[in-house]
Every structure is written in C-alpha cells, then in structure tokens.
C-alpha cells in the first residue's frame, strides 16, 4: 500500500475518497448523529495515516483494519475507559510484505464478499447488524440464520497462513 510505503499524501487522499463516505454511512447506521459521525471519520482517517507503518497487508486487509479502528473509536467514545485490546505483535520494521500472501488474502476477502452478497436478504441484514454492533453475543449465538461458519470457511486458507505466521512471531 502506497500510504504505508511512502507516506504519500496523494495515495492517502485516494483512500480517503473511497473510505470516508462509506465510513460515514457505516457510522450513521449505528445511530450516531451526522456531526459526530464526521468527527469519528476524521479521527479514524487520521489514525489510518498515523499508524500506516503498522499496517501489514500480508496479515490484514485494509477495509478490515479500518473497520477495527472505527469500532474501537466508536466504542471508546461511549465509555470512560478504552476497550481492552490484544497485545500487539512485534513486527520487524521494514520487512517487505509477501506479495503472494497479500494477493491470497485479497482473493479470499473478495470471495467472502461475494458469499455475503449472495446470502438471502435476511441473512445479509443479520450480518450487517452483527458487525455494526447491533447484536449481543447471545443474539449472535442464538440466531441460527447467522452464517458465521461461512465467514471462517471462506477465508480458511488465509487463516491457516495467518496462524502459521503468528506462531512464528511469538
């Protein structure tokens, strides 16, 4: 990703043009007002820029990473304390991401996207609700229509590679 490699403003501007309106749409759907939604968009996009060097495209997908930053930001806004996050893995600085792995992850994410888009409308809506934070864990576990298995099976290979990589990093 060019933002990561060259801290290139032009690349960041492009990323902003693609993600910022979607992020705002996403945040609005969680019931946040428009002004506050833009405030969150601004903070999330700034975090993306500031943490770009920590982003490893062979281990994560850019939209997955931005989703995570956005949810953390939204949740922290409604709490006094910040939400518990896992330890960060030590990353070798300046290691080139493995291109085949980046591509593999992209392909699997695309397959997952396709699978989710092909779900019945009710199921797709339920996926949206779950990841927008509208369902409790009890609701997620009792709603039989929620295809959590699909999510894991579509990125199974990626998960295996990830596990393997992560084990090496410990």
């Amino acid at each position: 990703m060019a933002v990561r490699d060259h801290r290139d403003r032009a690349a960041f501007a492009e990323l902003f043009d693609y993600f910022a309106p979607r992020l705002k749409g996403f945040i609005l759907r969680t019931g946040t007002g428009a002004a506050q939604a833009e405030e969150i968009v601004q903070e999330v996009m700034l975090t993306v820029w500031r943490k770009a060097d920590q982003f490893d495209p062979s281990r994560a997908q850019v939209s997955a990473w931005i989703y995570q930053i956005a949810r953390n930001r939204q949740i922290d806004m409604f709490r006094k304390e910040s939400r518990p996050l896992p330890e960060e893995l030590n990353q070798e600085p300046d290691t080139e991401p493995d291109a085949s792995q980046v591509l593999g992850l992209e392909q699997e994410a695309a397959r997952l996207k396709e699978a989710l888009n092909n779900l019945k409308p009710e199921q797709r809506e339920m996926i949206h609700q779950a990841y927008l934070g509208e369902l409790t864990h009890k609701e997620i576990s009792t709603r039989t229509g929620l295809p959590l298995g699909t999510i894991k099976s579509r990125i199974r290979l990626g998960l295996e590679r990830l596990r393997h990589d992560l084990k090496d990093m410990r």
Partner: peptide, 14 residues
Amino acid sequence: EAHHVAGGVVLEDC
C-alpha cells in the same frame, strides 16, 4: 482477523 475481514466487507457495503 476473519471477523475483521467480515466487518470490513460490511463497511464497504454501506
């Protein structure tokens, strides 16, 4: 990470 990918798909879908 798989769940983050799914969340990212939902984000892009909004």
